[in-house]
Structure formats: C-alpha cells, structure tokens
Simulated scan of single mutants.
Amino acid sequence: MKTIVIAGGGYSGIHLLKGLKKEFKNMIGKEIQIILIDRNRYHFRKVLLFKEIIQPSDLEIPYEEYCGESTEFIQGEVLSVQKDENNLLILREGKHECVPYDYLIIALGSEIREVSAELGGISLRNIESAQMIRKQIFEKLNEQSGKRLLNISIVGAGITGIETAASIADWLSRETGFLHNIVLINSEDRLLPQLPETAANKVEKQLGKLGIRVEQGKRVERYANGQIEFKNHPAIPADICIWTNGMIPNPLIRKLEFKTDCKGSVIVNSFYQIEGEINIYALGDNALIRDRKTGEVAGMTCKEAIDQAGRLSKIMKQDLKGKQKLSHKHHFDFYCISLGSEKGIVWMKPLGLNFFITGRLGGKIRKLTWDLASIIRR
C-alpha cells in the first residue's frame, strides 16, 4: 500500500485531500493510504479573520469533517523531513514520532506578517488580536460618547486591509451611530497593483462611499501618542491603529532544508515537485510556482491554492500509473473583495475583457468564494 502524507491543512491542504479522495476513491484503504497532518485540530478560515473584529465568528472547522472514515488525521507539529528514510518527523503529544511516506506534500501555507510591538498599534494576525481590536473600539466609543467621532487607521491596503476597513466602516455606520474617520494607508502608489487600474479605481470609489479615505504612497514609521507618523509626510490623528501587512511563507519551510527563494518559498517544478526530489511536492502559499509557458508566478490566494490542489491530485494519480503528466497552469484572472456586510466587487478578465460585478450580487459571490475555499456546503 502506498502512503500519501499531506503536511498542512490550510486551503491547499484540504483541497488536495478532497482531490486525492476523488481521484483514488475505490483505491483508498486498499492500495492507497492518505494521512493529513497539522499542528491544530481544526482548519482555520484565515481569510475571514477580519470578521472577528465585528462579532464572534466560527472560523474553525475540525479536520475530522474533511477526513471522514477513509483518511487519517494526525495532530502534530512538523519538525523535519528525513528524505533518505522517507519519514516525516513530527512532535505529537510532546513526543517525537516518525510518519513514513511514499509521497509527501508540503502544504504548510503562510503566516500573517507580524509587526514589531515597538511600532505601536495591533497586528490583525489571529483571533486574539481581532478580539483585542474589537475591545479597543468599544473602549474608544465609550470614551468618546460626547465627541461621536472615531479615528481609525488601517495600515496595509491589500485585500485584507480593504475588507477590514470596509467591514468596520459598515458596522460603525449601521450599529453604533458614530461618525467615523477611517483611513486606509497604502505604501503603493495605487490600490491593488495586481489588478488593472480601472478595477483599482472602482474599489477606491466604493470605499469612498463607505466614508473611507485612502492615503496612497505613504510609508508608516510608527503609531505613537494617538498619531500615525510617516517618513516624509505630516502625522495624522488615530484613536486606533490596525496593521494588515500581508502574508509570508511559513517560516518552517526554511528549516526543512529544501531550496527556497529569498522570500522563503520552496522552489518547485511545473509538476509541483520540489527541486531535486521525486516523491516530495509542494503547493500553495509556501511554494514558488511558475507557469512554464508564461513565466507568471502563482499568487498567494485561495483560488490559486484550490486550482493547484486539483491539478496536483491528477498529477499524483498519473505518477502512480506512469502516464504523461499535466503541468501547472496560471490561474485565470479573478478577484473578489467584500465591501461591508452585504456588498462586494468582483473583477474578472474573460477573453481579455475587464468584467465587473458590484453591489449585493458581488457580496453574494464573495461569500460563496469563502465557503468554496473551506469546502462548506450550504
């Protein structure tokens, strides 16, 4: 029996598990054994973390719901890969344990970039930090009941920063009656450089309707004494400072002794095999993946991880059968962004044309993408 081990249960990990179960279906338990390993007992819906600021949200899904009876889940922390012995060394319940594999997939994902405490403010990086932001907002609302104006600055204008700003603005307007001055601070010259300028301008316009001002091309030095301080611009007032500084590949990747790029992503070929390895693959946020025809590098998004997982599932089946393999293909251009509790904006580029969906339909599509990412059926 061949053993396939998936190290990591983020978006790419759970979708790879789903894909392998589909590809190998009747072979599982007879010719194929699949094991999913993660340090947590649950899949964490990381892209929805900003919602925890507004209200407690159920962001944890037990891995047993994904594995079922046909595959095995092990809660353990990955320590190293013993390539010569085909063993994955993990820490399980305080003890070192070797998990043998025939095929290993590294799907350890990414971590939210943490900002030094010396810079002030709060980094939105886990449930505890989101709850801390929520508590701080309520404290400021109570303090300023006479003033009825709340200044909030969000540093980092990627999709998470945009969705965080929009969610807070929408909530304050609907639920508290407080006026708000929300500033989204972008170090780039415009929003979302990975999108066409027309799409970025539409997003900025929608943010303006929510009362959110975007400060472009400004680098924050620190938050101190109730002010956001910039390197070459005047300071602005802020009662609360939230950092949303993007993602970095899981730092554990560097410790596994695979070849990585300068950002810490493991380098793979067009079949997702780690450079120099035959039976070890990597995908998702922790991998540097290029389209061999266009040279485009895959982004760190759920939609790309899902697409890679489906493709790798087929590649692994072809590997076992000795057939000619598929190769990685760049995901089609498609982005969804929520803009408050009900609305959103969708951009896609079919046949080279910019296509937009906005308003409530855009919001419904965004919610659907969140559910698809965590394999939730409603």
Rank of each mutant, 00 (worst) to 15 (best):
E257R: 13
Y63P: 03
G109D: 11
N201R: 15
V78D: 11
V220Y: 09
V297D: 00
S313A: 15
E65R: 12
N354E: 12
F230K: 10
I253E: 00
G276V: 12
Y103S: 00
V115P: 04
I168N: 08
G363C: 04
K367T: 02
L49R: 12
G362H: 10
L191I: 03
E111R: 11
L339W: 11
E128G: 06
A157K: 02
T71K: 08
K21D: 11
K231I: 14
E52V: 04
D38A: 01
T164D: 13
Y103C: 03
R292C: 09
C98M: 05
Q75W: 03
R134F: 00
L150N: 10
R148N: 10
M300W: 01
K303T: 14
I376H: 14
E304W: 01
P193F: 03
F356I: 10
W370D: 13
S313G: 11
Y223E: 06
E111H: 01
F178H: 00
R190G: 06
G13V: 03
M132C: 12
L192N: 06
C98S: 14
G246V: 08
A107K: 05
A117R: 15
V266R: 01
G352D: 07
S123G: 09
I53S: 10
K293I: 14
Q144R: 15
Q324I: 06
S80K: 13
D84K: 15
N201L: 07
M247W: 10
E64K: 13
H180E: 08
A7M: 07
I14Q: 04
I289F: 01
G121T: 13
L16V: 13
R190F: 12
E52N: 12
T176F: 00
P196A: 07
L141W: 08
H328T: 07
R377C: 05
G310E: 15
H330L: 04
D285W: 01
I248F: 02
L48C: 09
I4H: 10
H96R: 02
